[in-house]
């Protein structure tokens, strides 16, 4: 038991390259630790893309399986998190394509963006404004959701997002700007001062 604890402590102190070499040497505790370290990143990307809680675990498991199988091909050319995010992104996109769950929407198509519903105070309680913004994010086309998650939630740089998704930097910036502008437009005319205070409360500002 003490040996196991010591091993867990050792792995928790490791940096990524040490962790990788441990995994390549067959240390499965190190792999468990790697999964623990990066599972949030994978869940955020995969969850936002496939949007199905019931299938999320299977897809995430598939991502980490690919990580393990290809770990010997990882060449330190980018951060491990970027590499894992790339695998998560590709796996999710393939999953969506495979099961034809992706509506092939052109992200520039304004119809897709018009799906966003207007905020109406009679539909939503004031305290649900936070939920409303979340719902609107989930309604955005998959490319918008991806860049929003990678940039704002995971704090990847434009270059890293380019590496992960293969989108040009200009497109990434454009999606970020437009997603924000769109939500802003939806909220601008409806959020009164009281709601604003509630939102501030919710977001602990």
């Amino acid at each position: 038991m003490q040996h196991l604890r010591a091993s867990c402590c050792q792995t928790s102190c490791m940096n990524d390259s040490e962790l990788i070499s441990q995994i390549l040497n067959g240390n499965m505790n190190a792999f468990t630790f790697l999964v623990n370290r990066y599972q949030k990143l994978v869940v955020h990307i995969t969850g936002r893309l496939i949007q199905r809680q019931d299938e999320l675990e299977d897809v995430c498991q598939d991502v980490f399986l690919k990580v393990y199988q290809n770990l010997d091909k990882y060449r330190n050319e980018c951060k491990l998190s970027t590499w894992i995010a790339t695998i998560a992104y590709n796996t999710s996109i393939n999953y969506l394509r495979k099961f034809k769950k992706v509506v092939e929407v052109n992200p520039d198509n304004s119809v897709a963006l018009r799906n966003l519903t207007d905020y109406r105070s009679d539909n939503y309680e004031r305290t649900d404004l936070h939920r409303y913004i979340h719902e609107q994010i989930e309604l955005l086309p998959v490319q918008y959701r991806t860049v929003l998650t990678l940039y704002h939630l995971e704090e990847f740089s434009y270059q890293e997002i380019e590496q992960i998704t293969g989108m040009p930097e200009g497109t990434i910036k454009s999606y970020l700007f437009r997603a924000k502008a769109l939500l802003k437009e939806k909220l601008k005319f409806v959020v009164d001062e009281n709601s604003l205070n509630i939102v501030k409360e919710i977001t602990h500002e």
Binding site: Q39, V43, R48, T149, L153, K180, V199, T203
Partner: peptide
């Protein structure tokens, strides 16, 4: 507000 809401983690869980 919008930027802050972008940073709020989605509800997906494992």
């Amino acid at each position: 507000i919008i930027e802050k809401s972008f940073r709020i983690k989605p509800d997906f869980q494992l």
